[in-house]
């Protein structure tokens, strides 16, 4: 009985630790994708400013509340605006940002192909 008891506690603790390690990983991942708004070109993760420190706490709390990564991003986006996200959202404003490089790549490919067909 005692053995099971200890085993259970051990399982809970290890499980808790495991969860925590996972949470820290998500927290870091999120912090790396956020701009520290008061710094000059640093992410929240990399900065030690007060803003970044408090934002890290906010992220931790939100994770513990059970929000997933996407939900946290959209929460921060409504609070601070898109400026905070290093990964620009794909929407009307950013169609060109995401698609123009791809279009240029395709156009380049087309030009090279054309060269072959004309030359032959």
């Amino acid at each position: 009985m005692k053995f099971i008891h200890i085993f259970l506690i051990a399982a809970i603790i290890s499980n808790f630790n495991f969860l925590k390690a996972d949470e820290i990983k998500t927290e870091n991942k999120i912090a790396k994708n956020l701009r520290c708004l008061i710094c000059q070109g640093q992410s929240v993760y990399d900065s030690d400013s007060e803003f970044a420190t408090s934002l890290k706490l906010v992220i931790r709390n939100k994770i513990q509340e059970g929000l997933n990564e996407e939900q946290i991003y959209s929460f921060l986006k409504t609070k601070y605006g898109e400026w905070i996200l290093y990964d620009p959202v794909f929407n009307r404003n950013t169609y060109f940002l995401w698609l123009l490089p791809i279009l240029i790549f395709l156009a380049g490919g087309a030009i090279i192909l054309k060269k072959f067909y004309i030359r032959k």
């Binding site: 790396k32 994708n33 701009r35 992410s43 605006g81 898109e82 400026w83 905070i84 996200l85 290093y86 990964d87 620009p88 959202v89 404003n93 950013t94 940002l97």
Partner: peptide, 8 residues
Amino acid sequence: KISVGPPF
């Protein structure tokens, strides 16, 4: 204002 960072 948008940011374009490492993930992009």
